Computed example of a mutant assay.
Amino acid sequence: MSVTKPLDGKVILVTGAGGGIGRAIAMEAAKAGAAVVVNDIGASLDGQSQSSAAADDAVAAIEKDGGRAVANGDDVSNPDGAQAMVRQAADAFGRLDAVANNAGILRDSFFHKMTYENFDAVVKVHLYGTFNVSRAAADVMREQGSGSLIHMTSTSGLVGNLAQANYSAAKLGIAALSKSMALDLQRWNIRSNCIAPFAWSRMTSSIKVDSPEQEERVNRMKEMSPEKIAPVALYLASDDGADTTGQIFAVRNNEIFLVSQPRPVRSVHRGEGWNFESVRSHAMPALRASYMPLDVSADVFCWDPI
């Protein structure tokens, strides 16, 4: 008697799946019964050099474990590439039930030193890449009447971080994009959610270590494996996650967080309206107690992962 697996009969496309978090999601999805399209252009961390070896290797590992997978080397930042990978999923496996938008690059720099090229490149892969692949997948999913879009955001965008204006802007943009997709696509039973992952991977390996405190932080991050992220992604891709949409989760080792979304925290009202003096003397003193501090992600997630 065969045992039913949570993703039996499902087809999932995972971008940036040649290594790190993407590979972990692809591998675990295959073990859970899904057929997997492993997308990876084999780019270096800054998106320069390319090779198909990483995607091919992940496919070989999945097939060795008895799973089904195909490799794809298209570029998520190119709309035609996104269409091609979605078409490959439909051609190879007959449908597309879930997308994990994981592909990404980094080009860190302090804002006042950041070039247009480095801002544009990071936003193109993360934000435009998420749009391109999701937009292509939405056509297939609408015809099916179901689907799950899973996007990787980051606390660099949700909270803030130094020297990552390009990455932070893209990742916070992904959270807003996901909410819009959840609203627009709900009539076709297509859901859209975000995960902010904490894990040691190619992306986090670029963190500069220039102090004992930073070295300690990096050592703690090395203990957080990419495989810790996969269970939440698999749940969101499964039928059990059918009632979950428009949400933002964070996964940090053995912790799962539901992340708040921007809402008003305090208000002031003046019947006669406002002028500069009343804003200065009344509005801002009343609101100041609720100002958000200039936190970075490490200030908010300041305890050791459990």
Rank of each mutant, 00 (worst) to 15 (best):
S109F: 09
W188S: 10
E223C: 06
Y235N: 01
M85H: 11
D97R: 10
A53D: 15
A233G: 12
D210M: 01
D295I: 05
E223A: 15
K113L: 01
Y235K: 00
N253A: 14
W200H: 13
R252I: 05
G145V: 06
V86Q: 08
E277L: 08
C302R: 13
Y291M: 05
I207T: 09
V279T: 13
D184Y: 08
S180A: 13
Q164D: 02
S134C: 03
A90R: 15
N72S: 15
G173R: 08
D243F: 08
I21Y: 14
N101T: 06
N253S: 11
A138Y: 13
E255Y: 03
D40F: 02
S44E: 11
S154R: 09
N102R: 07
A137G: 13
Y167A: 02
Q50A: 08
A170W: 10
A92M: 02
C194E: 11
Y128D: 15
L13D: 12
R252V: 05
G47L: 03
A289G: 15
T245E: 03
T153C: 12
I306V: 05
A163F: 01
A24Y: 12
M284D: 00
H269Q: 13
V159Q: 05
S211W: 11
L185I: 09
R23T: 07
R135E: 08
R252F: 06
D243A: 10
S44N: 12
G19Y: 14
N78E: 06
T15Q: 09
A230C: 02
W303Q: 14
P212T: 12
D80W: 00
A121V: 01
D91I: 07
E272R: 11
D108W: 04
N166G: 01
V279E: 12
A199M: 01
C194D: 12
S201Y: 10
R23I: 03
A250M: 04
T4A: 14
P305F: 09
P212C: 09
E143K: 14
A24S: 07
M203Q: 12
T155S: 11
A35K: 03
A32P: 03
T155I: 07
L127M: 11
S134W: 04
R87H: 14
Y291N: 07
S2A: 15
V265C: 04
V265F: 07
L172T: 14
N253C: 07
I41E: 04
K5M: 08
G241W: 00
F110K: 11
D8E: 12
E215I: 00
V159Y: 10
E277T: 15
F111T: 12
K228I: 01
P79A: 02
Y116K: 13
T155G: 10
V232G: 10
A121Q: 11
I41H: 06
A55Q: 07
S267P: 04
V279Y: 14
G16Y: 12
M141Q: 13
P197F: 00
A250N: 08
V36E: 05
R187G: 09
K5A: 10
R142L: 02
R252E: 10
G271K: 14
V268Y: 03
L236H: 07
V11M: 05
A89Q: 14
A103I: 03
F119P: 02
V38R: 03
G145P: 01
G246F: 04
K208I: 01
K228N: 06
D239P: 09
E63N: 07
E277I: 00
T15E: 09
A176K: 07
A92T: 13
K10T: 14
E143F: 00
R23C: 04
D74N: 08
D139I: 11
S168K: 03
M152F: 15
R266L: 06
